[in-house]
Structures are given as C-alpha cells and as structure tokens.
Design a protein around this nucleic acid. Sequence first.
DNA 1: AAATTATCGCACTGATCGTTGCGTTAGTGG
DNA 2: CCACTAACGCAACGATCAGTGCGATAATTT
Lengths: 211, 211
Amino acid sequence: MVDAQAQVRPGGRSAKVRAAVHHAVAQLLAEEPAEALTIPAVAARAGVHPTTVYRRWGSPAQLLGDVATSRFSGDVVVPDTGTLTGDLERWLGDVATDLADPDTLALMRAAIGSGPDGGCACIGDRHEQLSAIIERERSRGGRAPEMENAVDFLLGPLYYRAIFSAQPASSDWARELVATFLAAPATASAGEQPAGGLRPSTVELQGPASG
Amino acid sequence: MVDAQAQVRPGGRSAKVRAAVHHAVAQLLAEEPAEALTIPAVAARAGVHPTTVYRRWGSPAQLLGDVATSRFSGDVVVPDTGTLTGDLERWLGDVATDLADPDTLALMRAAIGSGPDGGCACIGDRHEQLSAIIERERSRGGRAPEMENAVDFLLGPLYYRAIFSAQPASSDWARELVATFLAAPATASAGEQPAGGLRPSTVELQGPASG
DNA sequence: AAATTATCGCACTGATCGTTGCGTTAGTGG
DNA sequence: CCACTAACGCAACGATCAGTGCGATAATTT
C-alpha cells in the first residue's frame, strides 16, 4: 500500500491531492468502464499533474486498491441494537445500501478485476465487522452462528447479487436475508451448537431482481 | 458479441486464429494481472498480427467478454442422476471444480471488472442449468427449492468464495453445501411449498479456507 | 522565524498503443 | 478448376502513455 497520507507528511496539500484523486477515480469509474481508468485521465479529472499520480501510486491497479481500501473502510459502522438479529439486520442492510450505490458498485467490480489481492480490499472490513457482531452476541451469552456460515449465507448472496445482477439487492432484501438465515430451527441438540439456519419456504425471499 | 466464427466464414484459418487468441488470453490472464491484457500482448502471444485482433474484437473488454462467454459455456453439463440431491451435488461440484482452476478464476475476475455487462458472461449458462435441474425435479413430481433461493444459497456462497477468497471452494465443499441447503426440514405446511433449507449447525461446513 | 525536506508542477523523451490503407492469402461457391 | 471475397499480414502514422530531471512550493522541525 502507498498510504502516503499517514506515513510522513499528512499536510494539507497532500491530503487535498489525495482526496481529489480518490474522488476522480470514483467519478471516472461511475462514468466509463474500468479500462478507461488511466493515470492521465484521473489526473486531469482531479486537476493534478499526472506525474504526481505516477509517483504516489505508480499504477492504476495500486491506485484502485488504495481507493477501494479507503472507500470500504469506515463507511459502515457496527451497530449495537442489543440483539443478534437486530445487529445483523441493521448491519447487512447498511452494507446492502452501500452496495446499492452504482458508483460504489462500479468501484468494487473494478477492484475485483485488478490488483494482486483481487477484491479483498472490498471485504476486509466486512469480515471483521461480522465477526465482531457474532462475538458480541456470544459475549451476551446467546447462540450465534458460525462465522463461516454467516459469511457464506449472508455476504455470499448479497455480494453475488451485487456483482452478477443488474439490479443489486436492496436493504430490505438484506434484512429479510438475515431473518431467513436466523429463522431456521436449531436442529442441534447441544446448546453449544450455534443458531442460524434457513427455511426458504416460509419467508418471502423475492428480492428486487436477479438478472 | 463478435462471434465471427459462425457468421460467414468458419473456415480453418479463422477458427485457428480465434482459438489461438482465446488461448493467449487465458494464458496471459493466468500469468499477469488483468491490466496487462493489451491487444498487442495478446496478439504476440497468439502468434497473430495485432491488426487482426483489433479488427475482430476491437477492445480488450470485448475480447474478454468473448473469451468468457466461450469458456463458461458448455464446459459443465447438466447431470441426470435421478434425484434432485444427486443432480445438484454433481452439478455444483463440477462448477466448483471448474472455478478451482486458477486460470478460470483469473478469467472470471477479469471479466467482472471489464465490459458493460460485467461478469454476466460467466454465469449466464449457470442459471439456465440450475433452472433446468429444478424444473426436472418438478417434472418428476418432487419438491424443488425456488430458483431464487437456489441461486442465493448455492451460487452465492460458491462464487463469493471464488472471488474473494484466496483459496476457492473445493468440489467436496460444494457438495456439502448442497446437502446443507437441502437438509433443512420442510417447515412448510402445504406440499406445494418447495423443499430446500439450511441447518448449518449439524453439517460440517468448513471449507478449505476463507481468506 | 529560518532551515529542512517532502511533495508537487513543469518540460522533455522514449515507448507503446490504436488506427488506417493496401497487398496477399486462403476459404467458398459456381 | 476458376472467380470471388472474406480474413489476415504488413507498413506507416498520429496519439497517448509511462518515466525522468529539475525547479518551485509548502509543511515540518529547530
């Protein structure tokens, strides 16, 4: 990562340039396909000299990774509603709302296709947040689903729709997804077994569209 | 799509050039990041003149779309094991095996980030195949899950892991995913309600890795 | 407040990309 | 077997990109 902002000189000018470049990247991705994201184009949009972008970020891939990391960090907070269901519904709803923005979606799609770490920059925080929600529920003494399952059946469907569907999932759909995931009867015998399951027949799972 | 092969002159030379270019694209994507997929690079690898690639495909995005469409069509066949569980397990296992190939994965990641239709070329056939499996089960008189749910809870986790996880899901994991999805007790009262659910607590869902 | 130094803008150069016109090759049909 | 034409290779051109050295600016430190 470049992250020159926090390294040595976080002064006003560097920060302003960084913000302008980030904004330009998001703007360009929203307008044109990802392949049009060249350094000169970004620099021109940001009102910055191309040399600056070349020196600070090097390649479009690194620039994209930096923007994605910055954009997908801190924009969604972990709620504390008092219950696992409430936390998950609110959090996944916020994530879905975030992904519903076409600009954000374009950024994520572009980040997936470029860079060595793929789109990992887009979901790094999500896993930590989800893990925090599950951990909190366990600290309350409640039964929480396994992290593996929560990722597979909450983030999986949501991001699948976001990536491959023309119309991404809505916040309401995400909340219903949480309800569906948690609504399955705990077939486990021991109380140690985590809750969380799915009964797709009783809950209306019709999202906005699936492509 | 260009698809010049089936349009006017499917002669030996055109087909050979097309195959060479497709192979070169897959090869380059497996070696270098997607941004290095330039027309001259592809042409040089394929042993073809760049002008040819420019004329037939125009842009790297269209070329990628053509390659993805070709690669993700026909490589997985819809099985007929006699049961819904068997069909789904075999089919999703095949899909997972296909996605486990790093070259295929790189192609899909690149296809997502480029082109107007995103990665739709990667999953167009998958939805039709899954729908065919469900339809067949219903024609047998059995209860099959809703297409929406099957996509969300089978393709969703599988593709999520493939895209965002360093180590994609294995064929065995995919089969367990099917078993888990279908294993939930049919909480519906009427027989008309589709089967398919999830009880993550009783089935080991540990995949190879999740990042 | 002055010195220091990281960062940016500018001008310049080489390299690669994208495109076009034209001749050649090789499938297709009579 | 011969005419026809689609597809390819070749060469050349302009345009854009990628990279470098140097001076100017501004944030940081003393």
